[in-house]
Structure formats: structure tokens, C-alpha cells
């Protein structure tokens, strides 16, 4: 009983210390903010805003820009390691809005870390996230400029696709069982913007287990399959296992595409580029034929590793 009480006292003292140090004012961006970023989309936005140097730690799922990979990792967004975040003396944790992380985010706030929760699961949220980051980092202006150019890019894509027939698209997240992007997902929005019709648009949730029979019966004209991603994954324009269903227009017309999910599934600032990629898959007559980089990320220079050799 007694040791537990003492421990508690020490802990709460430590907490109040922290509170006193950190609580009074949000740290101003000029004072060398220290950022820990667990949201993959936010990391890309921060890079775009020129704030890469301020990032001192990243989450497990953050992989872009590649330069970040050398930084210490603090766990996944849904369960960040509080101690590591504190250890990095983070001023701000930039994270994804997540029910699972609510308690740990609240705890981090109590301990004096500012937590920015961004919802980048859809385009509007992504725009809002960019604005939030710009405002918080006193970079409102450049955020505004980026936003404007992104908006313009999206509008251009939409306008280019407008008026042409809208092919039926099946976007596969998982193949066995069949798991697809439904209404409310950024993928659904991309398909629409690029001038396609998502044949799973009438399902109940953004990501949904659906009936294979129904999806086949709806005769998709384009299949975009991001489900295969082990080593030796299928990539490129080929029917793959879908050739079982030779009655599908997508199979007959050779419009089944196997794509690295990273190129289409992770939402954020690359959305215009991703949407244009989607455009090349759905409307090559408008956006041009897909290129190799549309199927597989181009090999990026990995983090430069210095080999430490034993020297006498």
C-alpha cells in the first residue's frame, strides 16, 4: 500500500511539473517547435509546408517523404507510445482522428503536449487539415496557396472528365473476402471526380464487405485491385485471378489494373495526383494511358545508412 502511494505522489508531482512547464501558452512556431507526426497524410503536408526539419518523431505507418524514415518511431496512430512522445520533448502530436486513440491523446494533453487531430479520410477533411496545420504553424498563407493549387488541380480533373460516359468501376481493397471502398471514402470521391461510377456506391459504409456475386453481376468495366501486396505482388495491366470471370467487360477489354495500395489508398495531399492516376485508369482517352509509375511506386532512395566498420 505504502510504496504504491509514494509512487503515486511522485508521479503526480512529475505531472504537475510538466503542466507548469508546458501549459501556459501554446509554443510559438518561431521557438523551434518539436513535432511528432503519426498521421501519414499530415507528414506529407508538413513536407509541402517546408516544416520537415521540425519533425522529431513519426508514427509507425508514416513512410513519406522517405527522409523521415531515419526518425524515431512512436507506435501506431491508434496507440501512440506516450512515454516516447514525451521523451522526444514533443510540443505537438499531429495525429489522425481516432476513437481508439482518444484516451492516450487526452493523456498527452494532460501532460502538456498539444494534440492536433486531423480527419484526412476524405477530401474536405484533407483540405481542412491543411488549413489547420497552416494556421497553427503561422504558415496560413502558403497553406492557402497549396490549397488553391490543389483545388484547381481537382477542378481541372473534374472538368476534363465531365461529359464523357461514366464507366462502372470496381475498386478492390481486399479480394478474399471481397472488401471494397463504398460511399464516403476518398476513393469513392476520386472515382467520381475522375469520371467513373463506383459500383459499390450503394453499400452501407466507406469500407464494406460485399457480395462477390453482386459485384460481378454489375459487370464492372474497370477493376482496380489494390489487394495484392505481398512480395511478388501482381502489378500492372493484367487480369490475374479475375480472368475466371471472362464475361466481365473489364476482363474482356483488358481493363483490370493491379496497383500498389500506397498509390491510391492512402489519402491526403497527393489526392489530386492520385485522382489523375485514377483518371488514366478510367479514361485513358482523356488523361492518357497509365504509365509504369501508376502501378508501383518508383524505387525511392532509402534512408542513407552509414555502415559502422570496426576500425583498429
Amino acid at each position: 500500500m505504502r510504496p504504491a502511494l509514494i509512487l503515486l505522489a511522485i508521479l503526480s508531482a512529475a505531472c504537475s511539473n510538466n503542466l507548469q512547464e508546458q501549459k501556459p501558452d501554446p509554443v510559438s512556431p518561431k521557438d523551434g517547435l518539436r513535432l511528432v507526426v503519426v498521421s501519414p497524410s499530415a507528414a506529407e503536408m508538413l513536407a509541402e509546408l517546408g516544416m520537415l526539419e521540425r519533425i522529431v518523431g513519426i508514427g509507425d505507418f508514416v513512410s513519406r517523404p522517405p527522409g523521415l524514415n531515419r526518425l524515431p518511431r512512436v507506435g501506431p496512430y491508434n496507440a501512440p507510445n506516450i512515454e516516447k512522445v514525451l521523451d522526444l520533448r514533443a510540443d505537438i502530436l499531429v495525429t489522425v482522428r481516432s476513437e481508439a486513440a482518444r484516451a492516450s491523446n487526452a493523456r498527452l494533453r494532460d501532460l502538456g503536449v498539444e494534440v492536433l487531430e486531423l480527419d484526412t479520410s476524405h477530401w474536405e477533411g484533407t483540405r481542412q487539415a491543411l488549413r489547420t496545420l497552416g494556421d497553427r504553424l503561422d504558415l496560413g498563407e502558403s497553406a492557402g496557396e497549396i490549397l488553391a493549387s490543389l483545388d484547381e488541380a481537382m477542378t481541372t480533373i473534374r472538368q476534363r472528365a465531365e461529359g464523357s460516359p461514366s464507366p462502372k468501376v470496381l475498386f478492390v481493397v481486399g479480394r478474399d473476402p471481397l472488401y471494397v471502398a463504398g460511399p464516403g471514402s476518398h476513393i469513392d470521391a476520386m472515382i467520381q471526380t475522375a469520371g467513373g461510377t463506383n459500383i459499390a456506391a450503394d453499400s452501407d459504409s466507406p469500407y464494406q464487405l460485399v457480395s462477390l456475386e453482386t459485384m460481378l453481376q454489375r459487370l464492372p468495366e474497370v477493376i482496380i485491385d489494390t489487394s495484392d501486396n505481398g512480395p511478388d505482388a501482381l502489378r500492372g495491366r493484367l487480369p490475374g485471378p479475375w480472368d475466371t470471370w471472362d464475361f466481365l467487360p473489364a476482363v474482356r477489354e483488358n481493363r483490370v489494373f493491379w496497383i500498389d495500395p500506397d498509390l491510391l489508398v492512402i489519402p491526403g495531399i497527393r489526392l489530386p495526383a492520385m485522382t489523375e492516376r485514377m483518371g488514366r485508369l478510367i479514361h485513358p482517352e482523356i488523361f492518357g494511358d497509365p504509365v509504369e509509375a501508376d502501378f508501383e511506386p518508383s524505387p525511392e532512395p532509402g534512408p542513407t545508412e552509414t555502415t559502422i566498420e570496426d576500425s583498429p
Binding site: S211, T214, L216, Q217, L219, W245, F247, L248
Partner: peptide, 29 residues
């Protein structure tokens, strides 16, 4: 099921299977 076919399509196949109804029945369901 999710496809349009039923017992009738299974037992009395129509000529041709352009929309894959019968194939869905036989190979999915």
C-alpha cells in the same frame, strides 16, 4: 444471393450467358 440467377437459371440454362449470370451461379454461389 447477390447475383440475379436462381434455381431456374441453374436448371434450365438459357442459350448464351452474356452477363455471366449462370457462371456466377456455378462458380461463386
Amino acid at each position: 444471393g447477390g447475383g440475379e440467377g436462381g434455381l431456374r437459371e441453374l436448371l434450365f440454362p438459357a442459350a448464351g450467358d452474356g452477363d455471366g449470370t449462370r457462371q456466377i451461379l456455378l462458380q461463386v454461389r
